[in-house]
């Protein structure tokens, strides 16, 4: 299920606080839609991104998608393990399958995003 401590976007990214920074990934729904993930393109550390800017990309055999920054910030770290093991996103989307971390985030921006309950309701409109 969608963890209650995270916030969500309509593009199926999640974001959660970890100390001073915020971790971003894609949701279980998103990984399930993509199928077996074969490649992930991660941003450069230090890159400043705007809200909704294309920040990473994810590819499976039959699909491709962009991962947008849920909020504005600066990339402070990326999950390098995904370069070797992109399947971590399929296996553990809310954990080991995280994509990147953002610093310099205005915490108020998160209030504009959906909480777990709202996102779960939103998924009902997405069909399969």
């Amino acid at each position: 299920m969608n963890p209650s401590e995270l916030r969500y976007t309509e593009d199926h990214e999640w974001i959660g606080r970890e100390g001073d920074v915020y971790v971003v990934g894609i949701t279980d729904f998103a990984q399930d839609q993509l199928g077996d993930i074969t490649f992930i393109e991660l941003p450069a550390v230090g890159r400043a991104v705007k809200k909704h800017e294309e920040t990473a990309a994810v590819e499976s055999v039959k699909a491709a998608g962009d991962v947008y920054a849920p909020v504005a910030g600066t990339v402070t770290a990326v999950n390098e393990a995904l370069e070797r093991e992109p399947e971590l996103v399929n296996q553990d989307p809310f954990g080991k399958g995280w994509f990147f971390k953002l610093g310099d985030v205005d915490a108020a921006q998160l209030e504009e995003l959906m909480d777990a309950a709202a996102y779960t309701k939103f998924l009902e409109t997405c069909g399969d």
């Binding site: 499976s60 055999v61 039959k62």
Partner: peptide
């Protein structure tokens, strides 16, 4: 392989 680069999947991108 690498079909996710191509027009039938990624369309305008």
């Amino acid at each position: 392989t690498l079909q996710a680069r191509e027009q039938h999947i990624r369309r305008e991108k």
